[in-house]
């Protein structure tokens, strides 16, 4: 090997080692920026022309925006945990749609009330080799709320939100407790009836 190729090889090695952490850290920053952009686009829809249109009117646009970075199927299956297997295929589809609507209807209503909230995001924290957490602060008219998003690097999907923590309270764990309690005494069809009633009253 001549001196030129040795020098080139050495320079490439040196550059690779020096840049490796930055490349990874850029990946995390890009993921954080993408999440921030997704949530700002959600707020754009919720606060478009100061309209207070109900969730049902904006549902398709809201789901269209969030679907890119939020894996609701994962969130819901993890929430149901072992109870997921107690549902037949038709019930799984119904429960998936109803819970997605219930969660989005409740949370978007809060974000829609009052002036447009201000969002600020912190640097992502690494949980494991394929999971990160992005902390944020939502400044509402009357209060400041800490919301953290847990994302997993899912095969064929990329970085996806699989849990949301409000003031440290995990949504998946909280729902899991409620489902466990429900299935102690009640059935899957009771759950579907309950979800329908909740949505009508929400």
């Amino acid at each position: 090997m001549n001196s030129f190729s040795l020098r080139s090889l050495f320079a490439i090695l040196l550059l690779t080692v020096a840049l490796l952490p930055n490349l990874r850290s850029n990946d995390l920053v890009n993921t954080k920026d993408a999440l921030e952009s997704t949530l700002n686009r959600l707020l754009d829809v919720l606060h478009a022309n100061h309209s207070a249109a109900p969730y049902s009117v904006k549902k398709d646009r809201i789901i269209g925006i969030l679907d890119q970075q939020f894996s609701f199927d994962v969130i819901i299956q993890r929430s149901l945990g072992r109870n997921w297997s107690k549902l037949n295929d038709s019930q799984k589809n119904q429960v998936y749609t109803l819970i997605t609507d219930l969660i989005l209807q409740s949370y978007t209503q809060e974000l829609q009330d009052g002036p447009r909230p201000e969002l600020s995001f912190y640097k992502p924290k690494v949980i494991t080799s394929s999971k990160i957490e992005i902390e944020s602060i939502v400044l509402l008219a009357e209060s400041k709320i800490n919301i953290s998003y847990r994302l997993a690097n899912i095969k064929d999907r990329g970085w996806q939100v699989y849990d949301i923590l409000v003031e440290g309270i995990s949504m998946v764990s909280n729902y899991r407790k409620q489902f466990d309690e429900h299935f102690l005494k009640k059935s899957a069809s009771d759950l579907i009836d309950l979800l329908k009633t909740k949505l009508q009253g929400a």
């Binding site: 995390l28 299956q77 394929s130 899912i154």
Partner: peptide
């Protein structure tokens, strides 16, 4: 700092417990 190139299979994430 860990290797962030690991990709999760869906089954791993859905591990019910």
């Amino acid at each position: 700092f860990v290797d962030l190139d690991d990709l999760l299979e869906m089954d791993e994430l859905l591990d019910d417990d």
